[in-house]
Nucleic acid binder design. Structure first.
Lengths: 195, 195
DNA sequence: CCTAAAATATACCGATCGGTATTTTGTTAT
DNA sequence: ATAACAAAATACCGATCGGTATATTTTAGG
């Protein structure tokens, strides 16, 4: 890893939580230099513009979530338990112990939806990938009789994502972890009812 | 209504969709003057600062949702049908036929959560009021035997809000109304299972 | 119709915005 | 050790930011 690559990673690591909290328009180059201790010249020596930093920051935040989910999912055996992994992982996004500012998918979706097509495209792909992943899990669950055959994998995927993301919004806004407990309680019951 | 009050309302009406789409940091005073055709002097003759315009815009967007929901709810007789009113109303937020930019509660919650305490306070109140409203509906449903007595009103309220807001995020981002149909399909089944 | 007050427009403020050309510093291979 | 190169810092750019003091226009009451 060259010096430039190291610095690039360093900048992304330091700015990713800021973009996640303040959004694209709300994060200034001054924020970026302050967080990294570097100067504007150095930032622009490693990135073409603010857009590129924002994209890399989103990718970093997304990968951070994905790898944690992947790891925890591999520790579960049943499909239903795999589907419920999101509950434990996203708990950490609410109390702030992981990636300050909440879920990057939700934040960036709202932030970039009507303002930043490039960023929007990245979040869109993330949501569709997520939907496909859950859909395939459900299909596997149907195949091994864990889930009823008449269930719609796409519908289940969308419902789980909606509940998780909506739940994060509520719990983060209110700072009430017991709300997250109640919402995920409904989610557990829902997943249990699938088969 | 004095001239100043008219102008104030006019400014709020014209800027409310912009704040809803671009967020607080993303909406500039130039956006405000462009949308209204007024000058900065006129804006600041009616509002102390950008914050005040943003607050008034949020209040306006929120009231817009609330009154529509209230009206549609009064047309329903059963508690379950009242709970399902959100589905039809929010449909219009996704296709953009009402208040461009999606649900103001969701947008402002994400936008202001970590950046704007005053605005955050307003959204927080909106969500808690919403939760209480659904909670009381559920209690009424329990009282008239429409809903099982062992159901938790607070949990039901939070679950419905989470599904609706999460569903809006997904449907707006993907521009797929069929996704909204699938998610609200789950919501209908959920509400139906309550009693 | 005229005047006083209210409302809007004009012109400007310093600060900050994203971005860049140039210089200085740090690194690395010979 | 030094030359060649890469990387970071400095100093600056025009544009836009939110905000204001002042001048002009519009409104409303007598």
């Amino acid at each position: 890893m060259t010096k430039a690559e190291k610095t690039r990673n360093f900048i992304v690591e330091k700015t990713a939580p800021i973009f996640n909290m303040k959004g694209y328009a709300g994060t200034s180059l001054n924020d970026i230099t302050a967080a990294t201790g570097l100067t504007k010249g150095s930032i622009y020596g490693n990135f073409a513009n603010k857009d590129e930093v924002a994209m890399a920051a989103f990718d970093y935040n997304l990968k951070n979530v994905s790898t944690r989910i992947e790891a925890e999912m591999n520790r579960q055996t049943s499909i239903k338990d795999k589907l419920l992994v999101y509950i434990d992982i996203y708990q950490k996004f609410i109390d702030g112990s992981v990636s300050a500012g909440g879920c990057p998918v939700l934040n960036t979706a709202i932030d970039a939806d009507d303002t930043h097509p490039e960023l929007r495209g990245r979040v869109l792909k993330a949501v569709l990938d997520w939907k496909n992943k859950i859909g395939k899990l459900v299909e596997a669950g149907i195949a091994n009789k864990e889930i009823y055959a008449d269930q719609n994998p796409e519908q289940i995927a969308l419902t789980i994502i909606a509940m998780v993301e909506g739940g994060i919004m509520i719990s983060k806004l209110t700072s009430k972890t017991e709300y997250w407990g109640l919402i995920t309680g409904s989610l557990k019951k829902y997943v249990d009812s699938l088969g």
